[in-house]
Every structure is written in structure tokens, then in C-alpha cells.
């Protein structure tokens, strides 16, 4: 856990030095670069929430709303 917090802090610290300007974000705006689930992936996330104990932190179900795990 400590390592993860350290890694997050490090990433933020490093990135704060370099801010990518709006006009430089063309590649980041590519739909495939999105940092979330695509709409089509919702069924996959739902199936996994039913069939696996772990859920959350992926933009899908976290718990509740279904008779699942």
C-alpha cells in the first residue's frame, strides 16, 4: 500500500513539471485512449460482477443493485 501511495505521489510530482497544452492533446483525445470502460464493455463488467467475488475500481459495478457478489 505504501508503495502504491509513493508511486501516485511520484507520478503527480513528475507530471506537475510538464503540463501538456490543449493543442498537444490530439493523441490523448483518441477514443481508444479513454481511461474508462467503453459502453460496449458494460456487459462484460456486469458478467464479471456476477461470476467473480472482486468488483469495483474499473468503472463497473462496485456492489449492490443486483443479486450478485
Amino acid at each position: 500500500m505504501k508503495k502504491i501511495i509513493l508511486l501516485i505521489t511520484l507520478i503527480i510530482s513528475l507530471s506537475s513539471c510538464v503540463a501538456v497544452k490543449e493543442y498537444e492533446k490530439m493523441n490523448l483525445s483518441d477514443p481508444d485512449m479513454a481511461l474508462n470502460l467503453r459502453k460496449i464493455d458494460r456487459f462484460e463488467a456486469s458478467f464479471q460482477a456476477y461470476r467473480e467475488a472482486a468488483s469495483g475500481a474499473n468503472g463497473g459495478k462496485t456492489g449492490g443493485g443486483c443479486g450478485c457478489n
Binding site: 501538456v20 475500481a57 474499473n58 462496485t62 449492490g64
Partner: peptide, 28 residues
């Protein structure tokens, strides 16, 4: 009853690279 709270932190690291950290906590 299910109660959840989640936090997200996303960061652009370069013109070609970005990342997201997410933390979800759930009490049922």
C-alpha cells in the same frame, strides 16, 4: 443495503500517455 464511495485520480503524463488510479470502498 450497499454504500459505496470511490475516488479517482487521472493524470496526463505526456502527449501520448495517461493514467488513472481508482479506489472504491463498499459496505454491504
Amino acid at each position: 443495503n450497499s454504500y459505496s464511495i470511490g475516488f479517482g485520480l487521472s493524470q496526463i503524463l505526456s502527449k501520448n500517455f495517461q493514467t488513472l488510479f481508482a479506489l472504491d470502498m463498499v459496505l454491504q
